[in-house]
Amino acid sequence: MREILILGRGGQGAQTAGNLLARAFFEQGSFVQTFATYGGARRGTPVTASLRVDDQPIRQRSNIEHASAMLCFDESLLEPGFLGFARPDTVIVVNTHKPASAFAGLGDYQFFPIDGRSIAQRNDMGKVVNSALLGAFAAKLDQLDIDIVCNVIQDTAPAKKDQNVAACRDAYAMVRNQDAGGQQ
């Protein structure tokens, strides 16, 4: 079973990203379970979306304690509390304009920085970064078809469908061949 965490702040779209990713795995034929928890229930407070993917029905109903991959919407969330859910081999895609070297002091994780804001802006998405981040994350998740992710975005985006898909593909292409640590 694969266990994935998406960290964000209320209003950024972490819960939506979790739902879209779950839908993509579901469309591929996997069993999925995704749920979001939000302590503050208001904008700006931390939100965690949890996603389990398996080839058989998922029965566990508990928090994810060890994620194989994490997507972080806001670099300020990368503190020991959240990093405690990662292991050394955990892929962490983080929304930031900084290089991966800026995160080296946090521990021996596989960081993939992605500047979601600039990708969103050049694809006419303004401040809405979740389709770009989803594309970047999809690039580092095994056995996930980017075309299916884009179809899900096309089907579910409430507005700017083509721009959302373009941002997703743009970020996917940027991260696809990036090595861990952010070296091109």
């Binding site: 739902n19 779950a22 579901f26 069993f31 999925v32 379970q33 995704t34 749920f35 979001a36 928890t37 998922i58 109903r61 508990s62």
Partner: peptide, 12 residues
Amino acid sequence: HDAFYVSHSMEP
């Protein structure tokens, strides 16, 4: 049903 683990858990 339990908050979050069932109420907000999206599944097939």
